[in-house]
Write a protein that binds this DNA or RNA. Structure first.
Length: 432
RNA sequence: UCCCCGGUAGCUCAGCUGGUAGAGCGGGUGGCUGUUAACCACUUAGUCGGCGGUUCGAGUCCGUCCCGGGGAGCCA
């Protein structure tokens, strides 16, 4: 019995016999020689079967193999300059596990609708592999980063009694005894309770928006990473956001360069992502827009067009601070010097990828927070627990939320967020 | 909710000013001892999204509905 291994490790077995278990990616034949492209989840390798070198039934078995049939081969690893990965397998025996039915995804072009209907199979293709490997890496690196910085992972609930921010549309579901529950749109308010308990926390989990957004930048279910830090002011989380983003980009450049190559990502665009990030205020952003001939009413939030124009002025993420308070959520603290401005930040990714981070210093004064709740017509009873955080040892604190899919889309250079999560949930689509 | 584009073979698409459907890929059969989305030959394959209308005749024109794609607003 030969050594069972995976395709990413065959380089350690040159000249030796190994067993590879996987699926047929594609095959080519030429009379008395057959080429099987086998994938096993770690990579793709070409296996060569020569008629005179294997048992007749092994050679003829290649005829019935269809795309994505599962199989096991015993083969000698050979370095070969002609092979894309540098190695090839010289097959001596093969066992067919299952002959797949006609596989719907051929190695040719397909449209997005068809691919999304077959998302469970689309995941097997190399581009999707590259994206989802980078996603896994980004999430793990972010957690490693927070752990090193002394944060604790603080899971926020997904079923919530009310809207967190009172703004966007929520998915509603029945709870017990006639009560309603809503799927969380942010773990932030709970993270604030965590920060008052542990000092530095972060949440990582899915969030839900029932808005009928139908663009490449929106999913109805997406993941957010939300650090919240006690005693931190706006400046502190600007530094934290900058450092986190640089760390993630740098780590992908270092450890996932093969995947970036598969995605044909222009890495020079990522290499320029170094600290410090440019910082501008909302008012300065208006100046940029005015120079570009865009008139924007003071007090209105920026839309997709404005975000794109502003981010195009820079080669790295830009941090926009001090938006008018009326454009932002109730919990954001007003600037003590200019009370009509919020101590907040939006981080816009370059190349038109949009807002990847939104954060702020939180209102820590009890009376002002009560006032804000009233201004936003929010039911005070639902927020009594949140007000408690200002009754019992209130301190300045700040945090932000980083959209995982938008960040990954930007790093990968992928236009549409639907490819940055295994099973995207979209306005028109909840299958598979 | 609004605006734009689309729906023809399993997939990707072509089909002009109306005359009852084509290609490539995939599937099938055969050929080829170094193929790289292999190639060559033959072959298979359709309620032209649904309904209604105009017309001698509709994939094509009109109306309407359904589905999908892109965008706006909203947001990460």
């Amino acid at each position: 019995m030969s050594q069972i291994t995976t395709i990413d490790r065959v380089g350690q077995f040159v000249g030796q016999m190994v067993t590879i278990r996987g699926w047929l990616y594609n095959k080519r034949s030429s009379g008395k020689i057959r080429f099987l492209l086998i994938r096993d989840g770690t990579g793709i390798i070409q296996s060569v079967i020569v008629k005179n070198e294997v048992a007749p039934e092994v050679f003829s078995a290649t005829d019935i193999l269809t795309q994505e049939s599962s199989l096991e081969v015993d083969a000698t690893v050979r370095a070969d300059a002609r092979a894309p990965g540098g190695y090839e397998l010289q097959v001596s025996d093969m066992r067919v596990i299952q002959v797949a039915e006609d596989y719907p995804i051929s190695p040719k072009e397909h449209g997005p609708s068809f691919l999304l209907d077959n998302r469970h199979l689309w995941l097997r293709s190399s581009k999707q592999h590259a994206i989802l490997r980078i996603r896994s890496h980004v999430i793990q690196e972010a957690q490693a980063y927070f752990n090193r910085e002394g944060f604790i992972l603080f899971d926020a609930p997904i079923l919530t009694p009310t809207a967190c921010e009172g703004t966007s549309t929520l998915f509603e579901t029945d709870y017990f005894y006639g009560e309603k529950a809503y799927l969380s749109q942010s773990g932030q308010l709970y993270a604030e309770a965590g920060a008052m308990a542990f000092g530095k926390v972060y949440t990582l989990g899915p969030t839900f928006r029932a808005e009928k957004s139908k663009t490449r930048r929106h999913l109805t279910e997406f993941w957010m990473l939300e650090p919240e830090v006690a005693f931190a002011e706006l400046e502190d989380i600007l530094l934290l956001a900058e450092e986190l983003v640089c760390h993630l980009v740098n780590s992908v450049l270092t450890y996932r360069s093969e995947e970036l190559k598969v995605l044909d990502r222009d890495v020079t665009k990522l290499q320029s992502v170094v600290r410090p990030f440019p910082r501008i205020t909302y008012d300065q952003a208006l100046d940029i827009l005015r120079e570009k001939g865009i008139s924007h009413h003071w007090g209105d939030d920026f839309g997709a067009t404005e975000d794109t124009i502003i981010s195009e002025q820079f080669d790295r993420p830009v941090m926009i601070t001090h938006y008018p308070v009326q454009t932002k959520a109730f919990y954001m603290k007003g600037d003590p010097l200019k009370p009509n401005l919020a101590l907040c930040v939006d981080v816009l990714a370059p190349e038109g990828y949009g807002e990847i981070i939104g954060g702020s210093q939180r209102e820590d004064d009890y009376d002002k927070l009560v006032e804000r709740l009233e201004q936003h017509n929010l039911p005070r009873e639902a927020f009594e627990w949140y007000l408690d955080l200002r009754r019992y040892g209130s301190v300045p604190h700040s945090g932000f939320g980083l959209g995982i899919e938008r960040t990954i889309g930007w790093i990968c250079g992928i236009k549409h967020l639907r490819e940055t999560i295994p099973f995207p949930r979209l306005l028109q689509r909840i299958y598979p």
